[in-house]
Amino acid sequence: MKILVCISQAPDTTTKIAFTDNNTKFASQGVTYIINPHDEWYALVRALELKESGIATAVHLVTVGKADVEPVIRKALALGGDEAIRIDTDSNEPYVIAMEIAHYAESLGYDLVLCGKESIDYNNGIVGAMLAEFLELNYIGFATKLDIAGNIATVSREIDGGEETDTCKLPLVISCQKGVAEPRIPNMRGIMAARTKPLKVVAAAGIQPLSTIVNFEMPPAKSGVKMIAADNMDELVNLLHTEAKVI
């Protein structure tokens, strides 16, 4: 069984977010990138576990990005993927990403395609579903548990007030979230091994985006706390009326 894991990079969670070009672009200068945690901690680690337990024979990683994403892909290889593919184009648009991956993967016969439930930068959360559509495969989103027996996947997902368990025949696309696996820390042997693992660069199919970002806005700054003397009811009422505008 061959698994393809979709990996994207995302700004480190401590990044100070700013925009350039009239608020149309994310200011990436000086930003540290990490593997999107949902891809790394859940999709990739589960794929590695399936390989370690003898269920999967190969784990390939795919990312859409320019050469600057390679450190992140090397880290993923250090965690344990067998080989990586970088589709050489820069896009944050889910349609482009899903189409490019589908274009690359359609004839390669992957039995299982895993991705994170969303990337933590743009939070679209739809690449997995789109990819399944373009590959004409079944899709289960937001998995919290994933087991494979023979050619049947058993997948749990959270639903309102409980848990749903589905079974589905492979091949299949699954987006993963917390619960599917436990985060792993790479080790020095893995880091050394990653040096010589193949990282193939393939030309993009040149898919055009369906949507464009008009502009970004920062959420309003948190307003400070105003302290009012306990006995000054008039001031409190006044402020709730004129400033907070709630009464």
Partner: peptide, 17 residues
């Protein structure tokens, strides 16, 4: 190098955990 930084992140993650 990128590898040095990966090694640093790895050991830091281990220490924090």
């Amino acid at each position: 190098t990128e590898e040095h930084k990966l090694i640093r992140d790895t050991v830091r993650a281990y220490v924090k955990k």
